[in-house]
Amino acid sequence: MNLTTALARLLIFPGLLFAVPFAWFFLWVERKSVALMQGRIGPPFMQPFFDFIKLLGKTTPPRRGVSGLLMKTWPLLAVSTAGGAVGLLPVLPSSGGFEGDLILLLALLEVPSMCIIAAGFSSRSIFGEIGSAREAVLSVSYNVVFLLAIVSIAASQHTFRLEALAHLPASPMLILAVVAILVCLPAKLHINPFSLPNAEQEIYSGPITEYAGPELAMWELSHGLEWVAATGLVATLIAPHFTAVWLAVLAFVVLSFGVVLLLSVTAAATARLQIDTTVRFYWQCTLIFAVLAISSALFMRFRS
């Protein structure tokens, strides 16, 4: 029974069967909200799906050796880890068995970013290498804040269990931590104002410049799954506790959609920052949220 529920979570809800259509939906929301902000009509509803199918039907250039094998592996690894991260999200009430914990979830959320860095370097394109270097610098900057914010939540609850983190009592510390996570999400999802690794006017498509056909389709899908995982993480942190399953699912979907809308509108309204400005922003301005959150968490822990 435990194995069945774990598989059902990974494959059906909130796993792949739910996450893949929602990945396409969130990618559409991202493009559509940019279009609406610019006074356009924008792409049709099924556009990311059509793009995915079309890319599956394209050929890839012949690549030989280890490099060719790696270029096939990175996008698949990114898709599977992003899908696994979505599957771990504690949306439904616990039913025993394998649930994973916060450390596994954070690791899975981090792997797609690592894959992008490795992908740019294994493609041996100069634009890919510049994009990968930018992604690495960006990752070092935002991850300090992101991890401090999550660790502060875990420290205040004395646990790394995801189930306990899903039903947090509202506190100023939680608000600070969620704000810090929200500030990190544009950098994690490579959208404006931190779309440095895939800055199309500067370095074409960054790390994925050399990828084509089904590999590119997998990158698009992993980007969508990262959207679902990252916004879903925020949604589970701020969702109120419901005992009814359908209400929990509904709250998860609505809150995720709200976060996607917020991030897309921010992306549409802002321009890309320079890399040094971005690094300074995370190390100087945003770090204060994370430090406040973790100090208040430690304070709560000493008081209790």
């Binding site: 279009a35 006074g39 356009r40 009509i41 079309k54 498509s205 050399e210 990828y211 590119l216």
Partner: peptide
């Protein structure tokens, strides 16, 4: 651009020829 909005047809201007059709 917004006046003609070719994205309604799914058109995207890509930076890399590898991605283009």
């Amino acid at each position: 651009t917004p006046r003609y909005d070719a994205e309604q047809l799914g058109v995207r201007l890509e930076g890399s020829p590898r991605h283009a059709d």
